[in-house]
């Protein structure tokens, strides 16, 4: 089986789907001849031409707005927003238009647009190349939010997203775009949207993580193991709709839980996860559910590694729940 990094896995998924389905088009800034600033669409322009790999003017609202029109007409656009930080000019199009089209049309106009965008920090990108805006979109009914953490999941989930009929925000962890490498099957396969994966089993505490934080959680679990702490790591993979069954099964087993995300803490996705767990598993909890997150600040430049959760902070927080 070939190995790929996340960029290659994403590209492979796009290529497979564009070959299979003429309705799939890619559009965005620099996605054509240049192949995207992260090269996710490299080679697609040569294979599929300018009509299906569309270099657009520099206008995110226009990219998403025209993608919506294409989807209404029956196409399957996969727009790229160059950085998650630059998605906000398109916020109205995503929140008020894309997410609500099926609903406001009484089901007559589904709008299957899959928005790909790199998110997260750790690349010395400062405020505007590092943010994790997932909570804003999870809070938007009508959108699905998918956040893979590795090449295998990225390909299988992206293919699944392009083959279903709801709009999706597909968040790609840019810090590990190339660093995360793994075996990826050739050809087609899909992973079910809405299913989490237990990527490491453990008995003392559950770590809930997604996107770039899964590898941090795994690192913390390895360190914990050396110290006799058995940590279970759940990779949520889909944030909306999230996999409550897998989460509850793990938390009921371990009795403890820590949520890890890069985004700021207040009203972050961790808050929703903790609320949902305590509503359903209070009797199983041995300690409060804690969070390791970014700060309630804009994303910093020089101190980004202080801002970002790391394995030591995660393990320290796990210990707090164990010592409760």
């Amino acid at each position: 089986m070939p190995t790929m990094n996340i960029i290659e896995a994403v590209r492979d998924a796009l290529r497979i789907e564009m070959r299979r389905d003429q309705r799939v088009v890619v559009l965005g800034e620099d996605v054509g001849k240049f192949g995207g600033v992260f090269r996710a669409t490299s080679g697609l322009y040569d294979e599929f031409g300018a009509d299906r790999v569309i270099d657009t003017p520099l206008a995110e609202a226009g990219i998403i707005g025209t993608a919506i029109g294409m989807a209404l007409y029956g196409m399957r656009p996969v727009p790229e927003i160059q950085f998650g930080d630059f998605i906000f000019p398109a916020f109205d199009q995503i929140v008020n238009e894309l997410a609500k089209f099926r609903y406001r049309s009484g089901g007559q106009y589904p709008c299957p647009v899959v928005i790909r965008t790199p998110v997260g920090g750790g690349i010395r990108g400062g405020h505007y190349h590092s943010q994790s805006p997932e909570a804003l979109f999870i809070h938007t009914p009508g959108l699905k939010v998918v956040a893979p953490s590795n090449p295998y999941d990225a390909k299988g989930l992206l293919l699944a997203c392009m083959r279903q009929n709801d709009p999706v925000l597909f968040m790609e962890p840019k810090r590990i775009y190339r660093a995360s490498r793994g075996e990826v099957p050739e050809g087609e396969y899909t992973l079910e949207i809405g299913k989490a994966a237990v990527v490491r089993e453990g008995t003392h505490c559950t770590l809930l993580a997604y996107s770039g934080m899964v590898s941090i959680a795994e690192e913390a679990a390895k360190k914990g193991e050396a110290e006799g702490v058995s940590i279970e790591v759940v990779d949520l993979r889909t944030l909306m709709p999230y996999d409550i069954d897998t989460i509850l099964a793990s938390v009921k087993k371990t009795g403890r839980c820590v949520v890890v995300h890069e985004a700021p803490r207040t009203c972050g996705f961790g808050a929703e996860l903790i609320a949902a767990i305590q509503e359903r598993a209070m009797d199983h909890l041995e300690a409060p559910i804690l969070r390791v997150t970014g700060f309630d600040t804009p994303f910093p430049y020089t101190l980004e590694h202080e801002y970002l959760p790391n394995a030591d902070r995660v393990l320290g927080t796990v210990r707090q729940t164990l010592e409760w």
Partner: peptide, 18 residues
């Protein structure tokens, strides 16, 4: 919402052309 429909018309037209 005001004006948010205009890119949809353009996108539909782009799709017709594509």
């Amino acid at each position: 919402c005001v004006a948010s429909q205009i890119p949809h018309a353009v996108g539909i037209a782009m799709a017709m052309k594509a």
